[in-house]
Design a protein around this nucleic acid. Structure first.
Lengths: 242, 242
DNA sequence: AAGTGGTCTAGACCACCGC
DNA sequence: CGGTGGTCTAGACCACTTC
C-alpha cells in the first residue's frame, strides 16, 4: 500500500515481488512458494497470483510443473521470446551505441513487392527511407524502409529521431510483425557501404510490421553484416493446438 | 454439441467453436460476439471464454481492443509465434518430403563449446550425429547434433526414426530452445555436400534445446542452403514489462 | 494421502471506446 | 452513456507429482 507508485495492477505488483525474491534468494530450478502461499503473502486471490506467474513464465523467468510446483528457469535460457524491436532498441540491448546515416528519403510509387506487403495497390504513394545503421560508429546494417504515404509523408520524416517514435506520435502503434530471414551474398554497393569484402555473407531480415488491428504500417528490409550480427531467439514447443 | 469428442477442457471446446465460427462466417477485422454473449452461447463462465480467446489471440487468429471488442486478425498475419520444430516437422509444414543421409554417428568427448551449451564438463561423453537433410530428395541442410551421453548413447540411436521421437520415448521431452541465427559462407566440404558453389551464403542455426526443467537435451548446428531456405517468424511488441 | 498447478464458476468493479 | 474488454475475488473440483 505504501510504496506503490508506478504499478497499477495487482498482478504487476505480485510479479515484481516475485522477481525481487528470485533475484535476492533463489537460484535456477529452485521452487517458488506455492500459489496458495503467494496468495497469503501478497493478500490477493489465486487468479491474481496466476496472472503474475503467467507473465513471468512467458518471459522464461520461471516454469510450471503440473502437480509439483513453479520453479526458477535456467539463467542461460532467460532470453525472452523474440521481441519486436527497432534497430536502436536492439543495439542498445546488445550494448552498442547506435547511430545512423541517412542515404535516401524519397517519395516512390509502390512496386508490386512493396504494395503486396503493405496492402496497397501498385503505384500508390510510399515514403522510402534508406539508412546505413552503425553500432559504435561502425557499419552494422543497411536498412530500407517503406511506409504508406498516409502513414508518414516524406516531408515529415525527422532523420534525427526514432522512426518508431514518430509513428507512435502519429497514431500508428506497431504491435506485431512478420519477419523472414535469409542468407544473402553482398553485392558491390552493399559491401562497400557495410565495409566488408564483396561476396561476404549477410543476414537479410524482411519485416512487415502492423498495428493492433493488423493494418500494415511498415515494410523494412535490413541487411546485417554476417560477421558482426546474429539473431537470437527463444522458442517453445506447442504454441499451436495439439 | 454434436461432433465434440477429443477435446477435454471446456476452453478448448469454446476455442474450437470460435475457430469454426470464424471459418464459416467471419472475415478479417470482423467483430466476434462479445465475451458475455459467448458465455451464454457456450454456457460457460467468462473466465473460460477468456481462456479460449487468449489461446486464439496467441496464435494471431484474433486480437482484442480494450473497450471495443474482439476481432478477427488479418489472414496474412496468421503465421504463429515461432514454434520449436524438428527438421522433419519443418519440412512437412513447408510441403516438402523430408529425408536424411546419416554421415556420422560417434561417441566424442565434449569440447568446450559443446560442453558449455549442454551444461557438461569438458571431456564428458557425448553422442554426435551428423546428417545431410534432404527435401524432396535435394540437399537442404547439414545438421550436426550433440547429445549428452546419458541422454542417448550412440549405440541406441536409430537412424531410421525421428530423433525427437526417440528422445521423447526415453523421457526427454523437449520443451523450449534458444536459437542463434548467423549468415555464413560455405567451405569446400559443406558446399559439396549441399551441392552449391563454394562460397555460397547459408543460414546457420545453432540451437540448444532443453526439457521443461531447463536441462539441456540437445545442441544442434544446422546449416541451411541460402538459396532454398528462409526462416519465418511472427513477433509482437511488449512481451516484457513496459 | 497430501500438496501442487490446471480448470472452472458466479459474481464484482474498473478503464476504455463509441455514440 | 451503455457496451466492451481488463482485472479481481472467493470459493470449488480435477489432474498430476511426490511420498
Amino acid at each position: 500500500m505504501s510504496t506503490a507508485s508506478k504499478t497499477r495492477h495487482k498482478y504487476e505488483i505480485v510479479a515484481a515481488g516475485i522477481r525481487a525474491t528470485i533475484a535476492d534468494s533463489l537460484g535456477p530450478n529452485d521452487a517458488l512458494p506455492s500459489e496458495r502461499e503467494l496468495m497469503e503473502i501478497y493478500n490477493v486471490s489465486r487468479m491474481t497470483v496466476r496472472a503474475a506467474i503467467a507473465r513471468l513464465a512467458d518471459e522464461g523467468l520461471v516454469y510450471n510443473v503440473h502437480g509439483s510446483g513453479t520453479y526458477v528457469g535456467s539463467p542461460d535460457l532467460f532470453a525472452k521470446a523474440p521481441k519486436l524491436t527497432s534497430f536502436t532498441e536492439d543495439m542498445v540491448s546488445r550494448g552498442y551505441a547506435p547511430s545512423s546515416r541517412v542515404l535516401e528519403v524519397s517519395r516512390v510509387a509502390a512496386v508490386a513487392a512493396v504494395a503486396t506487403r503493405l496492402g496497397l495497390t501498385p503505384g500508390e504513394e510510399c515514403t522510402k527511407i534508406r539508412r546505413l545503421r552503425l553500432a559504435d560508429g561502425n557499419p552494422m546494417a543497411l536498412e530500407t524502409v517503406y511506409l504508406p504515404g498516409g502513414v508518414l509523408p516524406m516531408e515529415e520524416f525527422d532523420a534525427k529521431s526514432s522512426l518508431y517514435g514518430q509513428l507512435t506520435d502519429r497514431g500508428y502503434e506497431i504491435h506485431r510483425a512478420e519477419q523472414e530471414i535469409h542468407a544473402v551474398t553482398l553485392d558491390e554497393e552493399s559491401s562497400g557501404l557495410l565495409a566488408v569484402p564483396l561476396g561476404s555473407a549477410a543476414l537479410e531480415i524482411d519485416r512487415v510490421a502492423a498495428d493492433r488491428r493488423g493494418h500494415p504500417v511498415e515494410y523494412a528490409r535490413t541487411i546485417y553484416r554476417g560477421d558482426r550480427y546474429s539473431f537470437q531467439m527463444a522458442v517453445s514447443r506447442e504454441s499451436g493446438d495439439k
